[in-house]
Structure formats: C-alpha cells, structure tokens
Nucleic acid binder design. Structure first.
Length: 293
DNA sequence: TCCCAGGGGCATC
DNA sequence: GATGCCCATGGG
C-alpha cells in the first residue's frame, strides 16, 4: 500500500463526485469510497485503486507490474492536483457576493486532470457541440474498440487508444460509433499529428507563454480556442486557461451573475481578470455549481 | 416538435 | 472581424 499525504482544503469525496457525476465514464471506475484507473508506466499496464484514510490517500496496485512507486505517486499527485495550495482561491471567492457560496459548498474540490494529452484532445473533439451523455457513449465505443485493456476480477479496464492506432482506423467503424464526418476528420488528423511527432506535450511546454501555446494548438484542424483552452486546463493545468465560449460557463455565469450568455465575453473576461492565476479553478467550480448536488 | 448541447470550419461581406 | 450556415445525434 502506497500512502500519499493530502494538503489542506482537500476533499476526496468532492473529487470522487466530480470523477463520476452520473456519466458513463469508461476511463475510470468510481465506487462510494474509491476510484480505480488503469495507467501505463514505462510500457507496463498498472491498475491502481485510490481510497482515503485519515489525512492520507491510499494507493493500491491491484494488477500489473510496478517497477517504481515514485511514478505512481507523482501521477496521483498530478491527477488530484495535490501539490496546489488553494486557500488563495477561496480568499478571492470570499470577496465576491455572488460566488462566495462556491468555496463554501464545494470546499476541497480539486482540478482533476486528464493527464494524457492525446486523450484530452480527442475527448474535446468528441464533446464538441453534443450533449455529454451522448459524448460519453461515443468515447466508450471508441475506447472499447481500440484501447488496450487489462482484466481484473472479470472486469475490463482500459487505456485510451494510441495515436498510432487511431490514425489507421477504418472510418466506417467510427461512423457506426456515431462520429460525425467532421469528428472523424479531426480525430484522425489529430492522431496523425501525434504519430508524426508534430504535436506533443514537450512541444507545448517549449512555448513560453499561454498565448503562444494557444496559437500552436489552434493551428491544428478541429482545435479552436475552446478546445485549446480546455486542453491546457485539464492536461497541463495551466492556471490561466479559460475555455471561453463554453456552454457551461455561459450558463453558470448567467445564473450566478446575470452575465448574458451571448455577447457577454467582455464581462466574463473582466470577472476572470479578478481571479488571475485561478481561472481554471473558477471554471471548475462553475461547472460544479451547474451540476448541482 | 423544437431547442440546444463542455465548437469549429468555412464562405461571405 | 462579424455573421451565417453546416455538421450529426440525442436529451429535455
């Protein structure tokens, strides 16, 4: 059993709630008090189960061969955003009469990462302009068909498909999975970009500013501002990333601050400017509010 | 039936 | 640069 101490303002149950949210997620399995997820460490599939015990997270390796515990520890820290001290964010929320309830109601919710760059970008493309229930169905079909898996106690746990696999898939198969022609085009093109080494985490990290990262990402087909920002927020956890145009943000800011859903961009930017460095967290908490309890 | 979803590309002016 | 249209399906 690997133990990882948790920071102040950490709520495992809030994080689990976010991982679940009632959607049919295939990339991890959430129970009342734990989450299971398959990772790949130096080419080896490793199924882990994360649970909580007092002020620590317990990480158990259920299946697979783990050569170095440090790899799991750093991955779980990245996943749950454990190295961030979020008290300053709550202090900013406290100053806002409309938003202070967010800190109060969802204390300890962390920005749960999607650590795999290719996965988060494919997921963004799948999720474009369709309802989330439907998007999760499409993702499940894609992963079940093309993702590597590991069986544990008669259950299958999946890795997200590799770019090298998706760039050669039969388009008719994707059509049967209810991908639109646009989504097929974007997805395969993205997979090729990854496979050819034109797009990678390293190339993004080489950029010096947030806007340069955005410019780089949006140069790929199917990747607009929303997707680029979402990617930087969920994978690189860039503090300043805001997926402007997001239907959820628009709805939450209309509900909480009466900012018009259409044409309210300037007002949204002014609000986010007051949360400099915590834009990703504000977005997360707005989505949390939108999902209710 | 209708509107709209965790958008993006493209044509047009 | 702003605007309108298309994509595709399903939830509410």
């Amino acid at each position: 059993m690997i133990k990882i101490s948790t920071p102040p303002d950490f709520s495992f149950s809030e994080c689990l709630w976010f991982l679940d949210r009632g959607f049919d997620e295939i990339m991890h399995e959430v129970t009342a008090d734990s989450v299971r997820k398959l990772f790949e460490f130096s080419g080896q599939k490793v199924l882990i189960e994360v649970s909580q015990d007092d002020q620590e997270l317990n990480v158990e390796v259920l299946a697979g061969e783990l050569k170095d515990e440090k790899l799991v520890i750093s991955k779980v820290k990245e996943w749950f955003d454990l190295d961030r001290e979020i008290q300053p964010f709550y202090e900013l929320l406290a100053k806002d009469n409309d938003l202070h309830v967010l800190a109060k109601n969802y204390t300890g919710l962390r920005l749960m990462a999607i650590p795999d760059l290719f996965e988060v970008m494919c997921w963004s493309i799948i999720g474009q302009q369709i309802n989330l229930t439907f998007a999760y169905k499409i993702k499940r079909a894609l992963v079940e068909q093309f993702g590597e898996s590991l069986t544990y106690k008669d259950k299958l746990y999946y890795l997200f498909p590799k770019p090298e696999v998706l760039c050669e898939v039969n388009e008719d198969l994707l059509r049967e999975m209810k991908f639109s022609r646009q989504k097929i085009d974007y997805t395969i093109n993205l997979a090729k970009s990854f496979a050819e080494g034109k797009l990678s985490l390293e190339l993004i990290k080489q950029k010096e500013t947030h806007s340069e990262m955005l410019k780089f990402l949006t140069s790929f087909r199917g990747i607009g501002e929303w997707t680029a920002q979402y990617t930087l927020m969920k994978c690189l956890k860039s503090p300043e990333a805001v997926p402007y145009g997001d239907a959820g943000i628009n709805q939450a800011l209309f509900g909480l601050k009466n900012i018009p859903k259409k044409g309210g961009r300037a007002e949204q930017e002014a609000l986010y400017a007051r949360f400099k460095g915590w834009e990703g967290y504000l977005t997360l908490y707005l989505w949390r509010w939108l999902s209710g309890n």
